[in-house]
Amino acid sequence: MSEAVLPSVAAGDSDAVERCLDRYGGLVWSLARRYFARPADAEDAVQEAFLSVWENARRFDPSVASETTYVAMIARRRIIDLVRRGKAARRTMTQNDVSRLDAPPPIEELADPGATTFEADGVALLGFEVAEEAQRVRVQLARLSEDQQRVLRLALCEGQSQTQIADLTGWPLGTVKSHARRGLSRLRELLAEETRPVTTKQEADR
């Protein structure tokens, strides 16, 4: 793993800002693109997201989360906030093929390192890091009920709202919320039970 850049970013080091963009720009851009149809809207969201990353750079604690996860978390929060404020007019659909909807969601790609390779100072370490964490999540995600997996994938990987998921699945809104909350809670528990937990803080808490 490379040295963290956020402490230097917090100090106002312009070189660190560039390294931060090189390392995490693609990740934040990818997250924004899930929520915004127009590239111009996604670009605006990325700018807002990075402002939030810089504002929160001093709060980064490597004992709680990896730098990649922390940057993605801060950026994603800001992007979702923009979505909720109506910055993205979105509409999605699915085919009303109930038999296919009942099939397990294709989560295999989550652990594909080739799909998550980013160049960071000439080294594809972010791809490795993301892929490694994704592999752990994939394994534990597969232990959830199919309904929970489906809702979590739609919400987190596809960026679908609660209402959109209810439309897609035909489930009542309350059922969608219930599957999502219980699934996320269970996923967190399963990850915490692993030998190598998501965060060292969780390990200390166990």
């Binding site: 990818s30 997250l31 709680v64 989550l110 964490e133």
Partner: peptide
């Protein structure tokens, strides 16, 4: 953190 790890897993574009 858990949600972000899952959400970031499919990220693959360049800035």
């Amino acid at each position: 953190l858990v949600a972000t790890t899952l959400a970031a897993a499919g990220a693959s574009e360049s800035l």
